[in-house]
Simulated assay, not measured.
Amino acid sequence: MTRRELPDTWRGESYYGQPPLKNPQWDWKVSGYIAIAGLAGAAQALAWIGTRRDRDAFRGARRNANLIGLTGAATGSALLIADLKTPRRFYNMLRILRPTSPMSFGTYILGAFGVATAVSALGDISALRRRRAVARLADIAQAGAAISGAGAATYTAALMAATSNPYYAAAPRGLGAQFSTSSVAAGAAALALGERAGGRDKSAKQLEEVAAIAAVGHVGASLVAGRSRRAAGVERAVAGSAHKSEAADLLIAGALPIAGYALNRATGGRAPAAAVVGSLALIAGSFVMRHGILNKGKKAARRPDAAFGLAQPRNLPGTDRRRLGGRL
């Protein structure tokens, strides 16, 4: 590292003129992977829940969820391999399972999600669906895709929060809530678009209601996470970009879709275009939020005050703080 990697205006403490942390090299490929995996995983989980309640009404949603899941698993794997720079790294990650490593565990979650989704998709082939054994296997696989999909939608938050980056580590629960609510909102929005395209308005409205509730939850989770980062002294280190990014996130993934769904509901379903715009905004906002968080983590890594502030005893969990106090 060189002195130039510190902010130009930095005049405070540092490690011999260097940032205390290595800047994460993640770019749009990682944020794209996280967003796609979250959307695809949540879509499978929601479709499975829907088919448990009303199999016939959500038959189309199940079909679309399998398509979204296959596309998401393939695209997400490609983006992940591209970020790792060589396919052998992805293969090597599958050689050893370490439950304590979110990255190792997440690789297996992604693999299980892809396999379960592929088997579940067999049930969408009419010629194979007539065979009872195939239909039974596809139903079991759909449940597996839902469970692994829920993991794919959330494990990346645990992975990021487990790093030493102050912006990610300052609000681990808030980050998990942000990712999970955003994934549910985007997954429900994607399924709702498919239902609208297929003329299945009843199930589309139900999925849009889920998307709206998740969007409200995402707004709340973002505000709580921001409060945790401010309390840890991390938010002010990235104040300029953080405020702009957070405003864009709350607009695209919060206010706009909620307004669109509310308008369609208030008019008795006579404004489907507003609901479609809301769904598209949620899907776009899912990527915007994750990319913004990645970029703010990069900026925080270059600010020594963020790392030093998070390292203070007051930011340790209660048990660790008491143990540290006993040693002093």
Rank of each mutant, 00 (worst) to 15 (best):
residue 89 R to K: 09
residue 301 A to L: 09
residue 216 V to Q: 08
residue 62 R to G: 13
residue 298 K to T: 05
residue 320 D to E: 14
residue 73 A to S: 14
residue 280 L to M: 12
residue 271 A to F: 12
residue 155 Y to F: 14
residue 317 P to N: 09
residue 156 T to D: 03
residue 158 A to P: 00
residue 227 R to A: 14
residue 102 P to L: 08
residue 228 S to R: 09
residue 265 R to Y: 05
residue 22 K to Q: 13
residue 217 G to C: 08
residue 220 G to S: 07
residue 167 Y to Q: 03
residue 171 A to N: 05
residue 169 A to I: 07
residue 169 A to N: 09
residue 281 A to N: 06
residue 77 S to P: 00
residue 157 A to I: 04
residue 125 I to L: 13
residue 150 A to T: 11
residue 259 A to T: 15
residue 4 R to M: 06
residue 315 N to R: 10
residue 328 L to M: 10
residue 80 L to Y: 01
residue 179 F to P: 00
residue 151 G to W: 03
residue 222 S to Y: 05
residue 112 A to W: 01
residue 292 G to E: 08
residue 158 A to S: 13
residue 230 R to F: 03
residue 226 G to L: 07
residue 299 K to T: 13
residue 279 S to A: 15
residue 107 T to I: 02
residue 193 L to A: 06
residue 56 D to H: 11
residue 219 V to F: 09
residue 81 I to T: 10
residue 238 V to D: 00
residue 195 E to C: 07
residue 92 N to Q: 14
residue 57 A to G: 10
residue 323 R to F: 10
residue 120 S to L: 09
residue 243 H to K: 11
residue 145 A to P: 03
residue 76 G to W: 09
residue 256 L to A: 15
residue 152 A to F: 14
residue 126 S to K: 15
residue 258 I to C: 06
residue 207 L to F: 08
residue 328 L to Q: 10
residue 164 S to T: 14
residue 263 L to Q: 04
residue 157 A to N: 03
residue 223 L to A: 07
residue 167 Y to C: 04
residue 263 L to H: 04
residue 211 A to E: 03
residue 189 A to Y: 03
residue 283 I to S: 02
residue 40 A to I: 11
residue 274 A to Y: 07
residue 49 I to Q: 06
residue 313 P to A: 11
residue 187 G to Y: 08
residue 112 A to L: 15
residue 75 T to I: 15
residue 12 G to Q: 04
residue 34 I to Y: 06
residue 8 D to E: 13
residue 264 N to D: 15
residue 323 R to V: 11
residue 210 V to P: 02
residue 156 T to V: 14
residue 230 R to Q: 10
residue 260 G to E: 08
residue 315 N to V: 07
residue 167 Y to S: 02
residue 307 A to V: 12
residue 82 A to H: 04
residue 22 K to A: 15
residue 312 Q to A: 15
residue 12 G to A: 14
residue 150 A to G: 15
residue 126 S to Q: 13
residue 140 I to H: 05
residue 15 Y to P: 00
